[in-house]
Design a protein around this nucleic acid. Structure first.
Lengths: 193, 193
DNA sequence: TTGACGCTACCTACCAGTAGGTAGGGCGTC
DNA sequence: GACGCCCTACCTACTGGTAGGTAGCGTCAA
């Protein structure tokens, strides 16, 4: 096992927690070097610029999320169960004191380099697509009856989870997210199962 | 009319648009001085530190919002009409290319000085309280029937608007916010009017 | 003539990023 | 098996630039 891969992984992990607690603009190579235990300049060996690091961060996060969503889909559970599990991703990370990565990034979006903006956008599109598919399937097999087009309902679900994270973060009360999302799930469709 | 008040007002206005487009961490006294047309150092005459400016910003915003909400309440319109107007605040400002101020601030919350965190929190509490009152009144006078406790429904409405702003911002598509909120309004209650 | 207001000039701290060097592992060649 | 060579990984020392903030002077209106 190469030392370099360990360092790279550690850098990504620490950078992610920094972004998700302080925001992208507010963390520095200096902070990062202290936490990982190498010098500031050495970070440039692994990530030539902060933009490169930022993009690696999103890509890594997106890949993990994609895997989790695929796993969820593959489990073949009921749509409502999958959606509940999806919501738990958000409430879980927030309970650990971390904002969702792309929620944290989206707020500073105008300040981010275009390459990162594109990836943040792609991240949200992945989520909307996944949600839409789950909703559409649930409706198709008669499990649920949607009160609105799947795409719009998907946007609603994503928006509420992102927003609940922000509100919970500001109120310093992570417990708000779960009942709010639960209520929304009950509201957007009738469960016919 | 004093010149100083004009300058102060201009500083607040420009600072607000900067925060709402770039974020708090990403805007500087340098940016601000260019836009207002006085030197960087002169800003300190009006706002001794950035933290003082930040707090004035929130207070100013909160006061304007409080007035608008009070006006809305006083108009005595139906609950659903008031809520729709409330939603228009968000979609309106987003269409002008601005994030909601406290949404933008909340994302960087951990980086903000405690005095600002407190005010952001107070801002959200004001909104939840207003929404809760409107919902409760609407339910009391038989106009709507809520499917959940008013407080939880209020949190849901606020979360969704904040989140839809973030998502719309990241997707660079301000049009998502309106149909999403419209659908949510239809979902959380039955309109008996 | 005092005080509000804005200025120039400056400070310290920190930022991302660069220059250039060192320690040591892998590897082919003689 | 020792030599030369390139590589990765990290270092110290530094750059230009920018951040927020300070000191003190000029000006002009009340």
């Amino acid at each position: 096992m190469s030392n370099a891969i360990d360092t790279r992984t550690a850098l990504l992990a620490e950078a992610e927690t920094l972004v998700r607690t302080l925001g992208y603009a507010a963390f520095s190579y200096g902070d990062l070097s202290e936490r990982v235990g190498i010098r500031k300049a050495s970070i440039h060996h692994h990530f030539s610029t902060k933009e490169v690091l930022g993009n690696a961060l999103i890509e890594n996060y997106l890949e993990r999320f994609r895997a989790q969503l695929a796993e969820l889909s593959a489990s073949g559970g009921a749509a409502t169960k999958q959606l509940r599990a999806y919501g738990d991703f958000f409430s879980g990370s927030l309970a650990e004191g971390q904002m969702p990565l792309c929620g944290a990034l989206a707020a500073d979006a105008a300040y981010l380099p275009p390459s990162m903006q594109k990836r943040v956008k792609a991240f949200f599109e992945l989520h909307v697509d996944w949600l839409e598919t789950v909703l559409r399937n649930g409706a198709a097999n008669g499990e649920i009856t949607l009160f609105a087009p799947p795409k719009r309902s998907a946007l609603l679900l994503l928006s509420t989870l992102q927003g609940a994270s922000v509100v919970a973060w500001a109120l310093k009360d992570p417990s708000v997210i779960k009942p709010v999302f639960r209520q929304l799930l009950d509201s957007i469709s009738r469960n016919d199962a």
